[in-house]
Design a protein around this nucleic acid. Structure first.
Length: 605
RNA sequence: CGGGGUGUAGCUUAGCCUGGUAGAGCGCCUGGUUUGGGACCAGGAGGUCGCAGGUUCGAAUCCUGUCGCCCCGACCA
C-alpha cells in the first residue's frame, strides 16, 4: 500500500491522544536557545538525557521514521542497497585505516569499563562514528570481479561521536541518526556516475522533506578524497558559513571558498631596502597599525607558526587576513595545530609578535617543515614584517625578500571579495561574494582509491588486471534533518510540519469527548481521513478548548478538523490548515467527502 | 580545549550584592464552579538550594575545589 507524497510505515490506525504520549510544555525549557530546539522539547518530540544525548519520544520517533523512509525510497531509486553494519568496531580496523590519529579523539571506546584498578589501556573496540573502515574490508572479501560492480551500500543507523561541543539539541549531538552510503566502482568515470546519482537522490530527498537546500563545494576534511559537496539549509542558527555569488551561482563552504583577490596582474615589486626599526612592546598587527608606527594591516606580512606531525612550519599572510585552518589540510600533514610560544622561540629566534620570514633572519630555518605563503601577500607590495628579534620589525620588505617554500591559498575569504568562478570568455566572474550561515544536512564525497588501496579492496577487470575500487561516501543527518525542518518551518505558536514528515497529518480536535454525538462525528471524520491516506491523531483529552487549540498549534500537524457542540448545533465541522489562517466551516453532510478530497490532494506530490 | 555564563520543587523562576525559619507562577492531587484559544475558588503534596570542603554562633547567600548544563570559537551529518 504505497501512497504518494507521504510514506507508509506500518498499516496506520488512528491514534487517540489520550492513548499515546505527547508531553507538551507550556513554558520554554531554560537550556534551549534556538527555536527548533525549544519546539522539539515543547512539542514533546524529544527529551534530553545529557549533553548531546536525546530520547526520541513517540511523536518524534514517527518523524524520524518518516524521514528515514523517504531517504530509503530515494536511495533505492538510485540503486542503493540497504544493510546494517555493526556499531562496535574492533579498533584494528581503525588503526589500519588512514585517519586513526586524526579521528580517535572523537571516538568512544567500547571495551569493558574495567575493574577500576588498572589504568586505561588502548581501546579494544570503538563505537562507530562512520563506517568506511568496516565496509571496505567487507567489500574486499565479498567482491572481487568487475562483474559485481558497481555497488552502493547504505544504512540508516545511530552514529557515535565524542563531539567537542554538542549543541542546539539534535543539531550536533554525541549520538545521532545518519544515513551513510558507500559506492564502489570499477572506474573513475563510473564513480562520477555514482556520485551524481547520489547528488540526485539527495536533492529529491530534501525536497520531499520540505527543506530548501543548496549544494556547495566543500572541504573534504579528515575524510580525504578528491572533492565533495555539502547540502546546506540556509539558517541564521547554522554553524557553517556558505560563501556564494548571486550572479553566477558559485557556492562553497567557507573552509573551501576562495576569491579572485590577488589572482593576477600584480606587478613584481622587486626587492625592498629592508630597514630594521625598534617596536618595543608591539606584539600585534593592531599595535603596529597604531601611532607612532601607522602601518596599515594590509601592508604587513603576518607570520604564523604551526606544528605539523611534530615539526614546525610557517604560514605567511597579509596582516589584515585570517588563516583558514582547514586549508592547511592540503599540505599533507596528518595532524596540525598552532605552535606554542615555547616551541616558537628556539626556531624563530623571537617570541610571537616579532616574527617574520625575511631570508637569513630565521634562527633555525632548517627545523622547518615548510614556509607556506598565501598568494595574496603579493598585494602587500612594500610592507613590514617581524625581524625575528624581540621588539624589532623590518620595513620596506617585499615578497621577493621572503623565504618561501610553497605558494597557495590559506586565507579565509571575506564578504564582498570578487567571485572566483571561471566562465567562458572571462577569467572570473568577479561579482562581490556573499556569506550566509547554514545547517549542513548532507555531504557527498568522491573518495577515490584511498580506502580501497589501504584495505585491499581490489577487483579483477575483463583483462585479468587487478585494480583498487573507486569509492564514494555519502552522509545524511537524519535526526539533524528533523530539527532543520522545524527550524525552517515554525511560527510564534509552534511547529508547522510539512505533510510528508509530520508525525500525523490530520489532527481531529474533539472538543466534547464526553459527548457521544460529538465523539461519533469526530471518529467518523478521522476514519474518513485515514481511509483517504492520512495518518490521524484524535485529541480526545478532557481538556478545555483553549488548551487543545494551543497544543494543536504547538505540535503543528498540517490539517486540523474541529468537532464541537457549537459547530454541531449549526450542523458544521471546521477545517483549518496549520500554515494558514482561514477556518472553513464544512456542513456535516459534506464533511467526509470534503475530507477525503482534501487529504488526497495534500498527499499528492 | 580556550573564552563567557549558569545550577534553588517536574517546568519557569525570586531570594545571593548586604549571612539569620526557602517564596511565587505553571504543572500535580482533592472538592466545587466553569466549558470554542493555555479558566476560577478553596484545600493539599512536593526543595538536604548541583556536590565536597572551608569561614562563621549561624551559609542558598561569603571563600576554595569539583561536577553538570548553556553560549561563542576550532571540528562535524
Amino acid at each position: 500500500m504505497r501512497r504518494r507524497g507521504g510514506v507508509v510505515l506500518v498499516r496506520t490506525h488512528m491514534k487517540f491522544w489520550s492513548q499515546t504520549f505527547i508531553p507538551t510544555l507550556k513554558e520554554t525549557p531554560a537550556d534551549a536557545e534556538i527555536a527548533s530546539h525549544q519546539l522539539l522539547l515543547r512539542a514533546g518530540l524529544v527529551r534530553k538525557l545529557g549533553g548531546g544525548l536525546y530520547t526520541y519520544m513517540p511523536a518524534g520517533l514517527r518523524v524520524i521514521q518518516k524521514i528515514s523512509q523517504i531517504c530509503r525510497e530515494e536511495m533505492e531509486r538510485e540503486g542503493g542497497i540497504e544493510l546494517a553494519l555493526p556499531h562496535i568496531h574492533p579498533v584494528g580496523n581503525w588503526q589500519q585505516g588512514p585517519r586513526w590519529a586524526a579521528a580517535r579523539e572523537i571516538m568512544y571506546r567500547a571495551d569493558s569499563a574495567g575493574d577500576g584498578k588498572r589504568p586505561p589501556r588502548e581501546p579494544e573496540f570503538v563505537l562507530g562514528p562512520t563506517h568506511e573502515e568496516v565496509i571496505t574490508p567487507l567489500v574486499k572479501h565479498e567482491i572481487t570481479s568487475y562483474r559485481d560492480l558497481p555497488k552502493n551500500f547504505y544504512q540508516i543507523t545511530t552514529k557515535f561521536r565524542n563531539e567537542i561541543r554538542p549543541r542546539f539539541g539534535l543539531m550536533r549531538a554525541r549520538e545521532f541518526i545518519m544515513k551513510d552510503a558507500y559506492s564502489f566502482d570499477a572506474t573513475d568515470q563510473d564513480a562520477m556516475l555514482s556520485y551524481h546519482k547520489m547528488a540526485k537522490a539527495y536533492t529529491a530527498f530534501f525536497t520531499r522533506c520540505g527543506l530548501k537546500t543548496i549544494s556547495v563545494e566543500a572541504d573534504t576534511g579528515v575524510m580525504g578524497g578528491n572533492f565533495s559537496h555539502e547540502f546546506m539549509v540556509p539558517a541564521p542558527v547554522g554553524d557553517d558559513d556558505v560563501v556564494y555569488c548571486e550572479k553566477c551561482g558559485y557556492a562553497a563552504n567557507r573552509q573551501k571558498a576562495t576569491s579572485a583577490l590577488g589572482a593576477e596582474g600584480i606587478p613584481d615589486p622587486g626587492q625592498g631596502k629592508i630597514e630594521e626599526f625598534a617596536t618595543p612592546g608591539v606584539l600585534t598587527i593592531a599595535a603596529l597599525e597604531a601611532p607612532p608606527y601607522g602601518v596599515a594591516a594590509d601592508k604587513q606580512f603576518k607570520t604564523l607558526v604551526y606544528m605539523g606531525d611534530g615539526r614546525p612550519f610557517l604560514v605567511v599572510l597579509r596582516g589584515c587576513d585570517d588563516l583558514e585552518e582547514a586549508k592547511l589540510g592540503a599540505l599533507g600533514f596528518q595532524l596540525w595545530r598552532a605552535a606554542t610560544p615555547e616551541e616558537i622561540e628556539p626556531v624563530m629566534g623571537a617570541k610571537p609578535g616579532s616574527l617574520g620570514t625575511v631570508k637569513g633572519t630565521i634562527k633555525n630555518s632548517g627545523a622547518l617543515a615548510g614556509i607556506f605563503a598565501d598568494d595574496t601577500i603579493r598585494l602587500v607590495g612594500h610592507g613590514t614584517t617581524g625581524a625575528n628579534k624581540d621588539g624589532f620589525h623590518l620595513r620596506d620588505v617585499t615578497w621577493r625578500d621572503l623565504q618561501i617554500s610553497q605558494w597557495g591559498d590559506y586565507r579565509r575569504v571575506r564578504e564582498g571579495e570578487p567571485c572566483p568562478q571561471q566562465t567562458i570568455g572571462h577569467s572570473c566572474c568577479g561579482q562581490p561574494l556573499k556569506i550566509a550561515r547554514a545547517i549542513e544536512v548532507g555531504h557527498i564525497f568522491k573518495l577515490g582509491t584511498k580506502y580501497s588501496e589501504i584495505f585491499g579492496a581490489m577487483f579483477t577487470d575483463d583483462k585479468k588486471q587487478s585494480h583498487p575500487m573507486v569509492m564514494g561516501c555519502y552522509g545524511i543527518g537524519i535526526s539533524r534533518t528533523m530539527q532543520a525542518v522545524v527550524e525552517q518551518s515554525n511560527d510564534a505558536d509552534g511547529i508547522i510540519w510539512p505533510w510528508s514528515v509530520a508525525p500525523w497529518q490530520v489532527l481531529v480536535v474533539n472538543l466534547d469527548p464526553q459527548d457521544s454525538a460529538a465523539s461519533d462525528v469526530a471518529n467518523k471524520l478521522a476514519a474518513a481521513a485515514e481511509a483517504a491516506g492520512a495518518d490521524v491523531l484524535v485529541d480526545d483529552r478532557p481538556e478545555r478548548p483553549g488548551v487543545k487549540f494551543k497544543d494543536a498549534d504547538l505540535i503543528g500537524l498540517p490539517l486540523r478538523l474541529t468537532v464541537g457542540g457549537r459547530g454541531l448545533k449549526e450542523g458544521v465541522i471546521e477545517m483549518k490548515w496549520r500554515a494558514g489562517k482561514e477556518v472553513r466551516k464544512v456542513p456535516l453532510a459534506d464533511a467526509e467527502r470534503e475530507i477525503t478530497a482534501t487529504v488526497r490532494t495534500a498527499a499528492a506530490p
